[in-house]
Computed example of a mutant assay.
Amino acid sequence: MIVALHGAEFFAYHGFYPEEQHTGNCFIVDIEVEFEPDGSNGLSSDNLKDTVNYEELYHICGRRMQQPQKLIETVATFIMEDIKAQYSFAEKITVSIKKLNPLAGAKVKYTQITINYTR
């Protein structure tokens, strides 16, 4: 099973250059968490504790996006580590972050990094 959060938008102050850290930018985060439901009751329990809560994924992103970093690779790694800590049963996690309009004076729609974890 995969629970995903796609297109979560945040305004944050990540960036290597001081002007990026001062003016901020728009970021888009995508997350996919793959896991096998518990064999004893699967998801027939209809209980949120037996799955990945996409609302919590959003809150994890929000907390990390508000902590400025120079590299979005670092932000993605922290998000992934928080997801692993919250959902120890996760078998695969993919976190992608897009930075919109990343280069002043250049015509670039976005840059993107993607990190993967497999247990």
Rank of each mutant, 00 (worst) to 15 (best):
M1W: 00
M1E: 03
V3W: 03
A4S: 11
H6P: 01
G7Y: 02
E9G: 02
F10A: 00
F11P: 01
Y13K: 07
H14F: 00
H14C: 02
H14N: 06
G15P: 08
F16S: 13
F16A: 15
P18R: 04
E19I: 08
E20V: 01
E20A: 02
Q21T: 04
G24E: 00
D30C: 01
E32Q: 11
V33L: 07
E36C: 04
P37R: 03
D38G: 10
L43N: 06
L43P: 04
D46G: 09
K49W: 07
K49G: 12
V52C: 11
Y54E: 00
Y58A: 07
I60H: 01
C61L: 02
R63H: 01
R64S: 13
Q66W: 01
Q66S: 12
T74D: 08
V75I: 09
D82C: 07
I83K: 11
I83S: 13
Y87Q: 06
F89T: 06
A90L: 12
K92E: 15
I93G: 09
V95C: 14
V95I: 11
S96I: 01
K98F: 04
K98N: 02
K99R: 11
G105C: 11
A106D: 08
A106V: 14
K109D: 15
K109W: 05
Q112G: 05
I115G: 01
I115V: 03
